[in-house]
Amino acid sequence: MTQRSDDIRAVYELAALTADAAELTAMSGHFEKMFKHLEDLARVPVDGVEPYFVLPLRDLPLMADTANASGVEAGIRRTFVQSAEEFLVVQRVVNRGAGECAEEEE
């Protein structure tokens, strides 16, 4: 079993996929070839280059339109039952018997 075969098994698990042994073997060959091909990425000099994650020269005005211009965000905040700080606090749940409750109330 090569290191890459072990990697493939781990990646299958990460990707939430099942596979039988024959499929793992077939994939092993494919990925050997694929990663060899991907080595050509190293040929392009990228020092000082910013990664391209979003399209440049664009803003996302629609989010602003919805959240601000139309006042939706303010509306949400106004009707919010808890403060933002409280919202993230998970209330501790304590199990008690009926008798214990009654005692506390007293």
């Binding site: 990460l14 996929l17 280059v49 910013e50 990664p51 391209y52």
Partner: peptide, 28 residues
């Protein structure tokens, strides 16, 4: 499946910088 696996692979911690991040830079 081949594509999901490759995508999962290049986003994994050991491969992210040398594949995904690098590809994003070459895209620029």
């Amino acid at each position: 499946k081949r594509r999901i696996l490759l995508g999962t692979w290049v986003l994994s911690r050991a491969y992210y910088d040398s594949y995904y991040l690098r590809a994003a830079k070459v895209r620029t």
